[in-house]
């Protein structure tokens, strides 16, 4: 192999891993600052902000025209995110329940129906977005889409309610005292279907 080819390959791999390193430092910083119950590292927001700003500049998050190419590269190579899955803590589960009121005043309660396990796993991430977003319009829209899809099999629906909450599975240390799963209410929406 020619030396020039080797130099090109070396620089390529170096840039790739430099970007990967920055992405992972970025997610680590987010992980440290945004989570309570951190054991090994503690960081003040005043220390975090300047570092985060610099990383954002490098990754082109605040000046889009400056380095869009980096973001394209990251997206096309699947390296746009860090690797802290299920970390620092395992996320909580959510549950979404629909209650449809029919013309004859009868009520039908159901949860989103999924037949494939693979799609079911993806639904968890969807719920997490609904649960964590601060944008009320987005949350409402995401729940509404699900409600409409679920309603397709039902006739004469007059109104519908959507209740979204947390699923609190028993903790390991308390399991001997109580092994019951609890549900904590978070959001509820009511839709009048006829005046849609």
């Amino acid at each position: 192999m020619k030396t020039s080819v080797k130099i090109i390959l070396c620089s390529g791999i170096l840039i790739h891993y430099l970007l990967l390193f920055i992405i992972n430092v970025d997610t680590t910083l987010d992980c440290v600052v945004n989570n309570k119950g951190i054991l090994l590292v503690e960081m003040e927001k005043s220390t975090y902000q300047p570092v985060k700003k610099k990383i954002d500049v490098i990754l082109g998050r605040d000046k889009y025209n400056f380095n869009d190419y980096i973001n394209y590269y990251l997206a096309y190579t699947g390296t746009e995110t860090g690797y802290g899955f299920f970390a620092p803590n395992v996320p909580t589960s959510y549950k979404l329940v629909f209650e449809y009121t029919l013309k004859d005043h009868s009520k039908v309660t159901m949860i989103p129906q999924i037949s494939s396990h693979e799609i079911g796993l993806r639904l968890c991430n969807y719920y997490e977005t609904i649960g964590k977003t601060n944008v009320e319009i987005l949350r409402n829209a995401l729940i509404k889409f699900m409600l409409q899809e679920q309603m397709k099999g039902l006739n004469n629906v007059v109104s519908a309610k959507a209740i979204f909450g947390l699923v609190l599975t028993p903790a390991l240390k308390n399991y001997s005292q109580s092994n019951q799963t609890a549900y904590q209410f978070l959001y509820a929406y009511e839709y009048n279907i006829q005046s849609k």
């Binding site: 992972n24 997610t27 119950g37 054991l39 690797y83 970390a87 620092p88 803590n89 395992v90 240390k173």
Partner: peptide
């Protein structure tokens, strides 16, 4: 980084 992120949370240790 996967391990490090887990290590900084208390719940992976207990």
């Amino acid at each position: 980084f996967g391990g490090f992120h887990k290590a900084i949370g208390i719940n992976w240790w207990n």
